[in-house]
Amino acid sequence: MHDWSVILPPIAISIKVALASSLIVFLAAAAAARWMSRASFPGKTIIETLLLLPLVLPPTVVGFVLLMALGRRSWLGQAYEWLTGQPIIFTWGAAVIAAAVVAFPLAYRTMRAGFDAVDQEVEDAARAQGAGEWQVFRHITAPLAYRSLTGGYILGFARGLGEFGATLMIAGNIPGRTQTIPTAIFVAVEGNETLLAWIWAGAIVLFSFLMLLLAGLLERR
């Protein structure tokens, strides 16, 4: 039996990455979905296509684009390194960014469907009574789109938990720092550590099952 000091770090890192990325995704996707659901402007279809593009691109392509955008030769990467004194790639933060970018389209599409289903006349009636935009969103839009918002968050968490290709490209596979469950499974299989791979695979299946179960319970509620 393998030592817990080997088994637990990838699980802990994966959970932290999924929690951080799903929070970012939830806020960004909710804002984008709300805006795209209500706004009307030229080029809207193109903007929405760009938002959904990571959903159909191979994760390695997404990772390559992020590597070029955030690497030490890019102006973003250089600016971050100048501010913090360290590069952004091959860090825990890079894993969060990769998971967030890949998970965003799933959450956005789910939340957009929820906002589209909210009757705009109800929102307009609240505005006519003097309610501000935040009050309209908090008391009318969000409660009516509750299931879509919750589903978007859960999908974002599950996708971030299982992200592999983009994470490997910009965060690497550094044990104890950036090694998540999927990258750990990849290394274990390559090293013929089948039992270890099964343990990590079982952990990620369990977490994903629990998240889907939670989503089902919230939907029934």
Rank of each mutant, 00 (worst) to 15 (best):
T49R: 15
R109C: 02
L8H: 07
F207L: 15
N173C: 06
F137C: 11
L217F: 08
G77P: 04
R73C: 00
E219L: 10
L155K: 03
A99N: 12
L210F: 13
W4V: 13
V102N: 01
A203M: 11
A94P: 07
L217R: 14
T167I: 07
W82M: 06
I46C: 08
A128I: 03
A99K: 07
A32N: 07
W198C: 04
L144N: 12
M1H: 09
V6N: 05
G152C: 02
I46L: 14
A30W: 01
P10A: 01
G162Q: 06
W198H: 02
G152M: 01
M1P: 14
L8D: 06
I24M: 10
I181M: 13
S208D: 10
V61L: 15
I97S: 00
L213I: 02
K16C: 09
L196Y: 15
I181C: 01
A215F: 10
F207R: 06
S5H: 09
L212R: 02
G172V: 05
S21L: 10
K44E: 02
I15Y: 00
V6P: 01
L66G: 03
I11T: 07
I170E: 06
L213K: 08
M211Q: 05
W4N: 14
T167S: 02
G160M: 06
Y80G: 05
T45G: 15
R127T: 05
G63R: 10
G132E: 04
A20V: 11
A197M: 09
E81F: 03
F115G: 01
R127L: 10
V118R: 10
L196P: 08
A188H: 02
S37A: 15
R38W: 01
E190Y: 00
L144K: 11
L217A: 01
P9D: 01
R147F: 00
Q78A: 06
T60E: 10
R109Y: 12
A188L: 05
I154P: 13
G216H: 11
F207C: 14
A171S: 11
P143E: 11
E219N: 10
P58F: 08
A188W: 06
I47L: 11
S5M: 08
G114S: 15
A215K: 15
P42I: 04
R72E: 12
G77D: 06
